[in-house]
Every structure is written in structure tokens, then in C-alpha cells.
Design a protein around this nucleic acid. Structure first.
Length: 259
DNA sequence: TACATTTGACCAAA
DNA sequence: TTTGGTCAAATGTA
């Protein structure tokens, strides 16, 4: 019951943020038009506050639901083949529609299934480092369009494998412009912070993608770690990005849909 | 030889 | 009962 109220608050804040962002966009296109609902600066503050309050609401409310879902899955796991208690993975997922399946991570395919009412089978991937580093990240990839091929990738869990984080963090510290004097930017433009040769190609391919967030992001504002839906940012998981860049200081969206 | 992919079986959730 | 997620043996590839 409380989570329902909390969800309503979250939705309200997100909608407000979207509206203010739209107003800000209009203002930025007409720099002299300051007789609207507020200056660009004021709108930026409102937007930041809206997102901050949303993050706080999520942090205080829905986390329990997410945790209970994961623990259910863990507790009921048995040793028999194929006998894994599965919860329907509706929480902690990020959906990414892209022309490419590349995202800079190492994945290993562990299954493929034909899906009802879908022309194309769904492929199941887990992180390459599942066993050596207990990385629990998985993803499902489904072709949604034949020509040109478009893929809907749904990510579950988050990468805990150290190797990739190291590479990505290095790439960020090498070239991320937001770590300098522009820490309080709210940007709706695509950024290209990755200069590492290893990550350059996946990022370029991901640059054309669109992002859909069907549910709300679980996060921990106080610790600065965001289990974010911003997966498409640079084609990298946001966990380590937010560890390096203050969550409330830098929002950087390419394309987004709130509802 | 080591690692990745394919594929059918198994089983829980709906 | 149906559907979808995962396992693991078989197979492929570098």
C-alpha cells in the first residue's frame, strides 16, 4: 500500500521533470524568450530537484520489493538440473532497443527459446565472468525487426566483474569531460566519453539506439551507487559511472521516454 | 585444448 | 496446461 503511494509520487515527479525539461528545451532554443514560466537556470534547478526527489522516493520505498524478489529466487534454488526457482524478472531490468547487440561487455549465450507471438527466438546471455567473479549480470536479446535488424535487449542484474569496470573507469577518467569544471551540467545531448580503443566500436554502434525504461530504477542515492536504467549511456552499465560521477551532479540523457 | 554456441530437457510461475 | 528461464551435453571453432 505504501509502495503504491510511493509509486504515484515517483510518477508525478517524473512527469513534472519531463514537463520542465520540455520548457527548458524551448527556452534554450529561444535564448531571448525569458518571459515564460521561468529562466533556463530556474528550470534546470526544478528539474534537478524533481529527479533528486524521485531518486529519494525510490530509495525509501520500492527497494524492499526488489530485495524480496531476489531473495526468493536465491532461497529456493536447488541442485537439480533445471530446477531453479525463477521469479518473473519484472524488477531491476533495463530495456534497450538498438541496431546492435554490442554493449562493451563480454557475454556468453546459455540458451535460446522461441517466444509466443514472436517471429524471432529470444537469446539468453550471462556475463562471461559469472563463474570466476560471480558476476550475476544477464541479458535477453530478441530481434524485433527483420530488415534492418533491430534488437531489444533486456538487462537483468548488474556487472560486478572487476575487469570491465577497470577498463571503463579508465576510459572515463581519461576522457570524460564532466569530471572537470562542468560538474553541474544537465545535458540532453549524446556524449562520447569513451576513447579507449577497446570500447570505441561498441559505443559508436550504441549511439543510434533508443532507450525504454518500463519500470523504475532501483538505486541508492546515499551511497552514490545507482542501479540505473541509464544502461545505454556510452553503451556501458551505469553502476561504475555513477560511482565516479556524482549522481545529482550530472544527468546525461540521449533519448528518453518516461511513460 | 579451451572456450563458445546450440539444443533439448527440466521445471517454476502464471 | 502453457510459457518462459536455465541447465548441461553435444557440437563447433580458433
Amino acid at each position: 500500500m505504501e509502495s503504491c503511494t510511493n509509486r504515484e509520487r515517483v510518477m508525478e515527479k517524473l512527469v513534472m521533470g519531463r514537463d520542465w525539461a520540455a520548457q527548458l528545451q524551448i527556452l534554450l532554443r529561444k535564448p531571448t524568450g525569458l518571459d515564460g514560466p521561468g529562466t533556463a537556470d530556474e528550470l534546470a534547478v526544478k528539474i534537478l530537484r524533481s529527479f533528486t526527489e524521485t531518486l529519494s522516493a525510490l530509495n525509501s520505498g520500492d527497494v524492499d520489493q526488489i530485495d524480496s524478489g531476489e531473495s526468493r529466487q536465491t532461497q529456493a534454488t536447488t541442485a537439480r538440473r533445471g530446477c531453479r526457482k525463477r521469479s518473473r524478472k519484472t524488477s531491476d531490468s533495463r530495456v534497450n532497443v538498438s541496431a546492435s547487440m554490442e554493449d562493451g561487455y563480454g557475454w556468453r549465450k546459455y540458451g535460446q527459446k522461441g517466444i509466443l507471438n514472436s517471429k524471432f527466438p529470444r537469446s539468453y546471455y550471462r556475463c562471461t565472468h559469472k563463474h570466476d567473479q560471480c558476476c550475476k549480470a544477464t541479458k535477453q536479446v530478441q530481434t524485433i525487426q527483420e530488415d534492418p535488424p533491430m534488437y531489444q535487449t533486456t538487462y537483468f542484474g548488474h556487472h560486478t566483474c572487476k575487469h570491465h569496470k577497470l577498463v571503463a573507469s579508465q576510459a572515463i577518467s581519461d576522457s570524460h569531460p564532466l569530471q572537470g569544471s562542468h560538474n553541474n551540467l544537465l545535458s540532453f545531448e549524446s556524449k562520447s566519453p569513451i576513447s579507449s580503443p577497446k570500447l570505441e566500436k561498441p559505443y559508436k554502434e550504441e549511439a543510434q539506439e533508443s532507450v525504454v525504461w518500463p519500470d523504475l530504477m532501483p538505486l541508492d542515492v546515499t551511497s552514490g551507487v545507482c542501479s540505473s536504467k541509464l544502461t545505454s549511456f556510452c553503451g556501458l552499465d551505469m553502476d561504475f559511472l555513477v560511482e565516479s560521477v556524482d549522481l545529482e551532479s550530472c544527468f546525461c540523457f540521449d533519448e528518453m521516454e518516461f511513460l
